[in-house]
Design a protein around this nucleic acid. Structure first.
Lengths: 192, 192
DNA sequence: TTCCTTTCTTAAGGTATCTTAATAATAAAA
DNA sequence: TTTTATTATTAAGATACCTTAAGAAAGGAA
């Protein structure tokens, strides 16, 4: 299955698309390849695209005042990654988005997407649903992590994101969990 | 201005609505009054409505394993409040939503809203935009609070939600900030 | 293989925040 | 006003997690 097929299948899990609409959608979205370690977005540049991961994996992170990395999101196949704040407000991004492996992205420019919302209403529905669910998922994750200890969060991460855990170095997982690599190391020693 | 007018004005900040659509919208959304301390939603019951606060203020909270309250969200005029997870997945709510003052809510049942999405596309657009923004705002809040100390978060809360700060007891603010009332008290002693 | 870079671990001392328990202050009810 | 319920403060000891610094292990390059 080629990358755009993967994308269309992904859409069809949430919405119904006519043949004509499908053609339009295929025309409006573009494919982009990334080599491992290559950047999809740099902090300081404006994010102008919505981006879907058809193959591979990426991470989104920002640098704090002392230039330490904080990973905001990992993304694998069928996830969307973006610095949404930058995309929505048309301001410079605060996040870097980088490929962890060779990856293929399906993307669309904001202007094109806005056109498409008018041309193909199911696409607007798709994003309405996507953001509803993303909001809820993120809220659940946050509530969860606030009342849980780092050790519990790590265990949860391991079961929920096994696919990611095995593909990225440990210090990135620590960053994602909001703890230091030293402390994660201590946790692992205790539990394994 | 009556409560539905407030609601329509709120919608018009994000979308354009024809006169006909406005009539339909007014018909589909209902008004509901709440006395102080009255509940809009109970944990255990399914959340079936989208809810907009036209007047007053509310809080959403859940109880943890040891029955301690955790405030997830405060809401004042022109905010939406809900246990979205319950609403979207049609499962029992985990959150209670309670009026902090006498309040007026504009609400719509999920089934009616789904009808309306088809009848009035601008409404679907409104919610697409609303969730985009809510997601980004929530993500910003989370990232922010992860890298900040409780004292900094409290200062931020005070400037950002002055209206709320003056209307709710201090232990609720502590709960919202994810700290104990004792610790908030210590922070206040230091800074005031 | 050897060397260099990246990643992981260990350990000691420090800080933010929590828990518990008691008391004080304020608001609501009688 | 007096009583009761709610909310806020204080203080002591505990815990989760951090910082720093050094060394060990693993992976890639030469």
């Amino acid at each position: 299955m080629d990358s755009k097929d993967i994308f269309i299948e992904h859409l069809k899990k949430s919405i119904t698309i006519s043949e004509n609409d499908e053609k339009l959608i295929r025309k409006y979205f573009n494919e982009k390849e990334l080599k491992k370690k290559e950047f999809l977005l740099f902090a300081g540049k404006e994010s102008c695209h919505m981006q879907f991961i058809a193959r591979g994996s990426l991470r989104a992170y920002y640098l704090d005042e002392v230039a330490k990395e904080h990973i905001v999101q990992f993304g694998i196949e069928e996830w969307w990654v973006n610095d949404l704040y930058s995309y929505l407000t048309q301001t410079p991004a605060k996040q870097y988005i980088q490929a962890l492996e060779d990856s293929i992205i399906i993307q669309i420019h904001r202007d094109k997407l806005n056109e498409l919302y008018d041309l193909v209403p199911p696409i607007e529905r798709f994003f309405r649903l996507k953001f509803e669910r993303a909001y809820v998922a993120f809220q659940n994750r946050t509530i969860n992590s606030m009342s849980k200890t780092a050790e519990e969060r790590y265990e949860e991460f391991r079961t929920k994101y096994r696919a990611i855990e095995q593909r990225v170095p440990q210090y990135m997982i620590a960053s994602y969990l909001g703890i230091t690599p030293e402390f994660l190391s201590a946790i692992r020693k205790k539990t394994i």
